[in-house]
Design a protein around this nucleic acid. Structure first.
Lengths: 171, 171
DNA sequence: CAGGACATGTAATTGGTTACATGATTGC
DNA sequence: GCAATCATGTAACCAATTACATGTCCTG
């Protein structure tokens, strides 16, 4: 729903946003998107207007309603609920005896490579779009995107650190 | 199932383990635990023996079977599936215009306080149980617990860094 | 005598994935 | 001719949460 605050969008558009940069911190399958839009429409949180197209299926442009805006604002005022951390990797560590440490180490190394690649991408984005860094004078919108990217960079960096430490100790 | 590799346990025991240190990287409600144990037992991955007790309800001590061990080992050899990141906080950042930046900042500060407390706890545990740090000579079991703690410390540190940066920029 | 630990569950619902389905248009 | 893009969905299933349920013993 947050994505609809800015401007009206179709389910397809939202799906593309998840596939892009938004996907770094939130994702949903297209099935999930359409289902959610349908229930939100049913609850009166969003409404849509049909846009007929030739050759392609019709588009439904969803926009947020007053009720929806109220609902969203209420949600944003509630503290985030601590979500259960579930880390398969740490479970596997316990099983190192069972499958052999080398299997685990190989996987850790693979993940390390991936994370290093991701970090490089993020840093590229930062140097391209956020130099110099946003100051307090910038719009909230701009700060939010910057902090999102920074979140990606800090978590990836920490992951790399931990993976290196883990590989080092297990070897 | 990983928790049953070491020794037989009841659902109640597992629940307590989740409530303790294991809970930092994996949790489940007692309902979920009993349900999962029941299906695993049905699939032949675990078996139990009843322990009758006077005054208290009977206990079911579950232990892992050969089939279960095989299944678990297969699972551990598979690469972890990348799980969809979902971060409510970053969504809220986008809504700072709607609810006012101060609401968001207050929440960030609250979280910062919590994380600092958590970090202090972790560091206490580290200094108590892992000084000096485990070397390559230690058992895998010991290394695994250490790395789990290290994971907690690195991610909490990362959260603190990011929260400080975010508060700073939004103010 | 109230509240928590002990010990197990069922039922209903939500949130999400996987698989299946449709059908025209555009680019290689 | 084949795959990808555009654009929507349904159906079945799995995982997890919330709420409800039972009954004893021990401690303050």
């Amino acid at each position: 729903m947050s994505l609809l605050v800015e401007t009206e969008k179709s389910g397809y558009d939202i799906n593309k946003q998840f596939a892009g940069s938004i996907g770094y911190y939130w994702t949903a399958s297209h099935q999930q998107i359409y289902k959610t839009l349908a229930t939100m429409q049913h609850d009166g949180w969003v409404e849509f207007r049909l846009m007929e197209q030739q050759g392609k299926p019709d588009k439904k442009f969803y926009s947020i309603t007053q009720t929806g805006l109220q609902e969203l604002s209420n949600w944003a005022r509630q503290p985030v609920k601590p979500q259960a951390e579930r880390n398969e990797l740490l479970i596997k560590l316990l099983l190192a005896d069972l499958v052999g440490a080398d299997v685990i180490i190989t996987e850790l190394e693979q993940l390390l490579g991936q994370q290093q690649k991701t970090l490089a991408e993020y840093q590229h984005i930062q140097s391209e779009f956020f130099t110099p860094e946003p100051t307090t004078a910038q719009t909230l919108q701009c700060k939010a995107s910057f902090l999102t990217l920074r979140y990606g960079i800090t978590s990836t960096t920490k992951n790399i650190h931990w993976l290196e430490e883990a590989i080092d100790l297990l070897k």
